[in-house]
Design a protein around this nucleic acid. Structure first.
Length: 463
RNA sequence: GGAAGGGUGGCUGAGUGGUUGAAGGCACCUGACUCGAAAUCAGGCGUAGGAGCAAUCCUACCGUGGGUUCAAAUCCCACCCCUUCCGCCA
């Protein structure tokens, strides 16, 4: 969430920076400022009346204790008039906004616009429209060479029986993976390897969060309200479940409500960032507690609505994948140093495994909603003949902290919003792909990098 | 899911509908005493928004949201959470 004060003070600068994202959000600023203006007027007026009312009420109290009831009654009539005025102003305020019953203007105000505005890009972020304009920062290693034509992971997974794509789809639909045998073991070994690496070498504290979070958490990290359609909603204890779902009719809406989808307050995590960043929501941390560094494994659930048909084969775009996530909560003045370190931490994963990769600085148009600056790490997958994004490290500055009202108290006693960073360290599925494709042998087996061997308890996967 | 109890400031713990933003205690900060410290004494000590150069003043907040009232931490309704017991269950 952006700071309404700075929008008020420098609307042009905010507009300009939002415009670089290319989503047209800068157009909302005028409406926002107008609302802000109105809100402040109403509040000032209502506040004044409240002061009058409070004063009168106290006078009535004093009169009552002195048993001067006649005078008290007169005052009451006076107070009632003030009360009427306040009620009138409040209902006008609601009407003005077309607000629903129970909404205050500030709720609406906050929800409707501020929550929808993305973060402002940092000055060092290149302006651009899409991935084409991202800037290559560095590469590590080289594309591996083969004496044969490297196979895509799908073929390798099938011949080595690492993943049963058909049965995964049978269970849960396309985009869900059934790991089998060495595939399952490799997946598990990778998770363990990643966690250990970050815990023992990079100073992160492991947390293991719930995989279902409330909507407030999704809102806190900036996932909602914009990406509601990308999430999986869940609801416990569904009653009166209607099984006749294959016959959509005009009652679809009712049916959806019956199973609780429309009213869902709980969601499968799209990333461990959702629960972990929210760990300290609504807290005031001590300055001495910072920086906080967490590492967490979680499965990630993504509806990928609208992406049907795009790279749906194989493991590159799936509805559920594993990920080890890095989270940092730091003092504002350190956040960009911490971002560089976080990228290095994620890079170390690929270096230890001997995988060729490149680091890309995302341009303004390609960055995520909450981020002020993002580096992507893309690993080389020879069977695909392309780079796959396995990590995205972002500094969200105070954007998320504002949304979840997370602050820290400085030595001087001032409350400030910390900066929050998140980065994949790294996403599995795609790492799995790069690994099997990179280390495939002439005989169709996969050799395992030394760093991973203790975890897999094998140096080679064969059919 | 059923029953009972409970949610008040950093913690603890009071609070007959009317100077209660909230007693008391602990912790913390400042000052006095002391060579210094402890003990003791005096004072201070929540968050957010608004007005003002400033001292300061105003408003909101006692789980959340409604309601009753001139006035709500206090009364009413709904919901959430916690604890204990029961049921169910990995």
């Amino acid at each position: 969430m952006l700071d309404i004060k700075s929008i008020r003070e420098q609307p042009d600068s905010v507009r300009r920076r939002l415009a670089t994202r290319g989503a047209g959000d800068e157009a909302k600023i005028d409406k926002l400022l107008k609302l802000d203006e109105i809100l402040r007027q109403w509040n000032a007026e209502i506040q004044k009346l409240n002061a009058q009312l409070n004063k009168t009420s106290k006078e009535i109290g004093a009169l009552m204790t002195q048993k001067r009831t006649t005078e008290a009654e007169e005052k009451k009539a006076e107070a009632r008039q003030i009360g009427d005025k306040i009620a009138k102003l409040q209902s006008e305020k609601k009407a003005l906004e077309g607000g629903k019953e129970g909404d205050t203007i500030s709720d609406l105000f906050r929800r409707s616009i501020l929550l929808e505005l993305p973060n402002l890009p940092h000055e060092t972020v290149p302006e651009g429209k899409d991935a084409q304009d991202n800037r290559l920062v560095r590469t590590w290693g080289e594309k591996s060479t083969f004496s044969f034509k490297p196979k895509p992971h799908i073929d390798l997974c099938e011949s080595l029986k690492l993943v049963d794509f058909a049965r995964g789809a049978k269970l849960s639909g396309s985009g869900f993976l059934l790991f089998t045998g060495w595939g399952a073991r490799l997946e598990r070994a990778l998770i363990q390897f990643l966690l250990d690496l970050h815990i023992t070498h990079h100073g992160y504290t492991e947390v293991s969060p719930p995989f279902i979070v409330g909507r407030h958490c999704m809102e806190g990290v900036g996932q909602f309200p914009k990406f509601v359609d990308q999430s999986y909603a869940v609801r416990q204890g569904v009653r009166d479940f209607d099984y006749d779902f294959d016959e959509p009719d005009e009652e679809d809406q009712d049916e959806a409500e019956a199973i609780g989808v429309l009213k869902a307050q709980d969601f499968l995590v799209p990333t461990a960032e959702a629960p972990v960043v929210n760990i300290h929501r609504e807290e005031i941390l001590k300055e001495s507690q910072l920086p906080i560094r967490y590492v967490a494994y979680s499965p990630c659930f993504r509806a990928e609505a609208g992406a049907a048909g795009v790279g749906t084969r194989g493991m590159i775009r799936v509805h559920q994948f594993d990920k080890v996530e890095l989270i940092k909560i730091v003092k504002p003045e350190h956040s960009y140093d911490e971002l560089e370190k976080m990228v290095a931490d994620a890079e170390r994963v690929l270096q230890s495994l001997g995988l060729h990769y490149r680091v890309v600085l995302l341009c303004t148009g390609d960055m995520g909603f909450a981020s002020a600056k993002t580096y992507d790490i893309e690993v080389w997958a020879p069977g695909q003949g392309s780079y796959l994004e396995v990590s995205s490290c972002s500094n969200c500055e105070d954007f998320q902290a504002r949304r979840m009202n997370l602050r820290f108290k400085t030595e001087a006693g001032e409350n400030r919003f910390p900066h929050i960073l998140n980065g994949s360290g790294t996403a599995l599925a795609r790492l799995f792909v790069a690994l099997v494709e990179t280390f495939q042998q002439t005989d169709g087996s996969i050799s395992i990098p030394a760093a991973l061997q203790p975890y897999l308890k094998a140096d080679r996967i064969t059919a």
